[in-house]
């Protein structure tokens, strides 16, 4: 079961919710947008012998772009247990570009 959908805003947890360590420090506590939904990805030969649950590619503004208007984005693959729902923002004058209809560019509050 996948709890989040593409374009949904999520916040990365700051506390480690389980044995899964694979969330880069810069992404912890930050707001992002679900960019792709992957479902469960078995990864027995590399990182985890057990199922860590659904995986998402989450998109963030690059860490040097606090106003979110920059064209620099960072996309990190994060498991569902690390993610929490975040309230949607009201968007003014927002027009997604054609090539980018699947994602929503949102300003970041920090």
């Amino acid at each position: 079961m996948c709890g989040f959908v593409v374009s949904q805003r999520v916040r990365v947890k700051t506390e480690n919710p389980g044995p899964n360590q694979r969330v880069p420090a810069y992404a912890r506590g930050r707001l992002g947008v679900v960019f792709r939904v992957h479902g469960s990805v078995p990864n027995y030969s590399h990182d985890h012998a057990e199922d860590w649950g659904p995986l998402y590619s989450v998109r963030f503004a690059s860490t040097r772009a606090p106003d979110g208007r920059s064209n620099e984005k960072v996309i990190v693959d994060i498991h569902e247990s690390w993610l929490a729902e975040a309230p949607p923002l009201v968007r003014d004058g927002f027009e997604p570009r054609d090539e980018d209809m699947r994602t929503i560019l949102l300003p970041f509050p920090f």
């Binding site: 969330v23 992957h38 590399h46 990182d47 995986l55 690059s62 960072v74 996309i75 990190v76 693959d77």
Partner: peptide
């Protein structure tokens, strides 16, 4: 748009 993908093993 410059998209930097940070791979975390699974993908």
């Amino acid at each position: 748009e410059l998209r930097v993908y940070d791979s975390t093993s699974d993908i």
